[in-house]
């Protein structure tokens, strides 16, 4: 009896992951059926991201430091947030298109299938092209890593930073996409927080006013994506004079945002009534 219930718990946890894997495989096969376009999408994605960092690097031909931070320190911030949003976007980026599913009635079809709705939405049109961002951000971050004076605790904080920033962006993608349960054509609203959060965290928080820094810590904890853990990695005192223990709180912030996102998702799905036809 005890054994069967353990098996069913494992099966219940494994089921969504396995179905996600199945659907991802199908989409990858579909994507590869237009090889010329796929090759250009991959090159394009790498180019977009390379040019993105080039913009920041070119800034440093006119200045030595931005908000008190050098180019390599900014590269560390840039890499950390880029890897985070890259992983989240690759795995679940399609959740942005929830409004489209509602408008076209595909969400109704999905609700009838024996796979969790979030898994179906997130795996839809999975694309390998998004790996371009993770690759580029990893390269930028690798270039910045030698400036850190590594200790075991810093290695741990760095690893937790990558996991937490992915989870934070996962939460932001889901949380703000849920707005579309209420207004199905406002998908761009989420961009302000997801891609906006990514752009904002590419710069040191010191370029922003103190009030905004506080809001990004306690209201919408985007500063935990990279800013606080990077301060610890770089061994820098907090420029705003905020408590040092914040530098270890990224996993907690990520857990809170993910929990909030899942709660809002459930509320949105419960509230959802088909558009009819």
């Amino acid at each position: 009896m005890a054994e069967t219930s353990t098996t069913s718990v494992t099966a219940r946890l494994w089921h969504p992951v396995a179905r996600y894997g199945d659907m991802v495989r199908l989409w990858v096969r579909a994507e590869l059926s237009y090889p010329a376009s796929f090759a250009m999408l991959v090159v394009g994605s790498m180019l977009i991201n390379a040019l993105d960092f080039a913009g920041i690097a070119i800034m440093f031909s006119s200045i030595d430091s931005l908000g008190g931070f050098g180019l390599r320190e900014i590269a560390l911030l840039y890499g950390a947030t880029g890897v985070g949003i890259g992983i989240a976007d690759t795995l679940i980026g399609s959740v942005e298109r929830i409004g489209e599913f509602i408008r076209t009635g595909r969400l109704d079809q999905m609700l009838t299938k024996p796979v969790p709705l979030l898994v179906q939405v997130c795996s839809d049109r999975f694309t390998l092209r998004r790996l371009g961002r993770i690759t580029q951000a990893s390269v930028v971050m690798a270039w910045a890593l030698p400036i850190v004076d590594w200790t075991p605790s810093r290695v741990l904080v760095a690893l937790l930073m990558v996991v937490s920033s992915s989870a934070l962006f996962f939460g932001l993608f889901v949380l703000f996409s849920c707005v579309q349960f209420w207004t199905s054509d406002a998908s761009e609203f989420a961009n302000a927080f997801t891609y906006g959060g990514n752009t904002l965290t590419q710069y040191p928080l010191t370029v922003f006013p103190r009030e905004l820094a506080i809001a990004l810590t306690v209201v919408l904890p985007i500063a935990f994506v990279n800013w606080y853990p990077c301060l610890y990695l770089l061994g820098r005192p907090d420029p705003f004079g905020f408590p040092e223990w914040l530098q270890f709180c990224s996993p907690l912030a990520a857990a809170l945002v993910v929990a909030a996102a899942l709660l809002v998702w459930r509320t949105g799905v419960r509230r959802y009534t088909s558009t009819g036809s």
């Binding site: 237009y34 376009s37 999408l41 180019l47 977009i48 040019l51």
Partner: peptide, 16 residues
């Protein structure tokens, strides 16, 4: 190419 999304994204990046 049938699918123009590759060139579209590439050009978008250059344009930005």
């Amino acid at each position: 190419l049938l699918d123009a999304s590759g060139p579209r994204i590439l050009t978008g990046a250059l344009a930005i």
